[in-house]
Each structure stands twice: as C-alpha cells, then as structure tokens.
C-alpha cells in the first residue's frame, strides 16, 4: 500500500472535489482518495500491484487539472 500526493494549481469551484474523488475511486487499486480543496492537493492510498502512480496522476490531469508536482511514499 502506497500513498501519493499530487500538487495541483489552486482549485476554485468546489464541484471539482466530487469530480476528482469519484473518478479516482472508480479506478481499481485505489483504496482512498481525498481532494484537499484548500491546499490544492490530492491524496490517495493505492495498491502498487494493481495500479501505477502514473495512472493516478494521468487520471487527475485527464480531468483537466494540471499537476505541478507529485510525491509517492
């Protein structure tokens, strides 16, 4: 089980929280996904055997939220 933190550009409309969280939760291998609206971050727990960190990052940027930096631990 690993943790990924994605730094996004500042988030504005809070409707994005739902959008990003539900898109991530649909992915196989993600056990927890949380959008930290105020700090502009996405935090997710994932199973590294089932999904790659890159896929998670791509999903978020694919939704239209460019990623500034990411950290996997």
């Amino acid at each position: 089980m690993k943790k990924i933190v994605l730094n996004l550009e500042p988030l504005t409309c809070p409707s994005c929280i739902k959008k990003i969280e539900s898109a991530l939760r649909k992915l196989d291998g993600i056990t927890e996904a949380k959008v930290m609206f105020n700090s502009g971050k996405v935090r997710a727990q994932f199973d590294e055997d089932k999904i790659e960190a890159e896929t998670i990052a791509k999903t978020v940027s694919g939704l239209g939220y460019p990623i500034i930096s990411q950290k996997v631990s």
């Binding site: 409309c13 409707s15 959008k19 539900s22 898109a23 649909k26 999903t59 694919g62 939704l63 239209g64």
Partner: peptide, 15 residues
C-alpha cells in the same frame, strides 16, 4: 467545453 469533455470522457459529471 474542453473541461466538460474531459470530465465526460472519465464518465464524471461537471458544472
């Protein structure tokens, strides 16, 4: 529209 389309592609609803 670009953002709406991207969300739609991910089967996500958007404002």
């Amino acid at each position: 529209a670009f953002k709406a389309f991207k969300a739609l592609k991910m089967k996500a609803f958007s404002i």
